[in-house]
């Protein structure tokens, strides 16, 4: 186990390094940040000053060397636009994105799982057909359009929920989050649902597939023959068996929720990472873009590692590579 984790960690570092090289070189091919930063009314020497101060007058390899030196000591550079360390900016925005992704995940599982199991148990039912039809919609309707429709329905027409932004922040067990206040929840519910819709459909389909597969197996038949109540069969025999694939997928999906909540965050003006990085891309704020991409790579590498470990723990048949050395 230890050898496995060590090997994977070393691989991760190499992947991160290659990724940083790629990202750094490619982003340097796009435009010139000075055009986006310096006010056009400035005198020419101001443009030169900014170029010099931000090290943009240096060749790419020496800029990269400078970045690498900083990165090894945990400094991914300063945002051109905000003048503050890129990592600090991201750390500031991270809690907002995390709570959004977390709530979306909870919504996806609490709605998607029961519906999917129901659909798996009654594959030909009328309700099942409607649900599966809806899930196709959930997967294919663009998030931004649905977000706007939700705003129009719940905020403009019904006036129930606030349109945008993050609400009041409460503290519970030392964690600051808008989950802990009523105002915060009111702000959270719409963007979280919007973000969750795709995932609800996905969890539903996974659960349905798992259910119809497991229900046909011998141990379920034996349990039925034994006369166990239906509830008990679902709870103790069906659920644990369909959960394994769902847990693995959800682990990775949690990563995508954090990394790619951009569209939802933009529509609901949610002050999270996605909004930060979109602005950084538009303004060519290179250090923030690079730091963000490296963060996303690191996030997925970590999640993959954790999923592999959990998977091994859940299913004794899976042996981790390097386990036997």
């Amino acid at each position: 186990m230890f050898a496995f984790i060590l090997r994977r960690t070393i691989q991760s570092v190499i992947v991160l390094f290659v990724m940083s090289l790629l990202v750094f070189c490619m982003i340097n091919l796009v435009g010139d940040p000075v055009d986006m930063l310096v006010n056009p009314e400035s005198l020419p020497d101001e443009i030169e000053r900014v170029r010099r101060d931000f090290g943009l007058d240096q060749p790419v390899y020496s800029q990269y060397w400078h970045f690498l030196k900083g990165a090894l000591s945990g400094d991914l550079g300063k945002s051109y636009v905000f003048g503050r360390p890129a990592l600090a900016l991201m750390a500031e925005r991270f809690p907002a994105t995390l709570e959004l992704a977390f709530c979306a995940l909870i919504i996806a599982v609490t709605i998607g799982l029961p519906l999917g199991i129901y659909a798996g148990l009654r594959p030909d039912g009328f309700a099942t057909r409607i649900m599966m039809g809806m899930s196709v919609l959930g997967i294919s309707i663009p998030t931004f359009w649905l977000g706007l429709m939700m705003i129009i329905l719940f905020s403009v027409i019904l006036g129930w929920l606030p349109v945008s932004g993050r609400g009041d922040i409460g503290v519970f067990l030392g964690i600051e989050s808008s989950i802990f206040t009523m105002d915060g929840l009111r702000h959270l519910i719409m963007p979280a649902t919007n973000l969750a819709l795709f995932k609800i459909a996905m969890v539903m389909r996974l659960a349905r597939a798992g259910t119809s597969e497991v229900m046909a197996q011998d141990f379920i038949r034996f349990a039925r023959a034994q006369g166990l109540p239906r509830k008990r069969i679902i709870k103790s025999h069906l659920l644990p068996n369909i959960l394994i694939p769902i847990v693995t997928v959800i682990g990775i999906e949690f990563g995508t929720l954090i990394a790619f909540a951009t569209v939802t965050e933009s529509i609901f003006s949610w002050p999270g990472l996605g909004k930060l990085v979109i602005d950084a891309i538009i303004n060519l704020d290179r250090p923030v873009v690079v730091a963000y991409l490296l963060f996303v790579v690191a996030l997925f590498l970590t999640l993959n590692l954790i999923v592999d470990i959990i998977y091994a723990a859940l299913d004794p048949r899976v042996r981790l590579q390097g386990d036997d050395t």
Partner: peptide
């Protein structure tokens, strides 16, 4: 800050 134009309008109406 509400960057999306439609969201801005919705925020005003609501």
């Amino acid at each position: 800050p509400i960057k999306d134009g439609t969201t801005r309008t919705a925020a005003l109406i609501s």
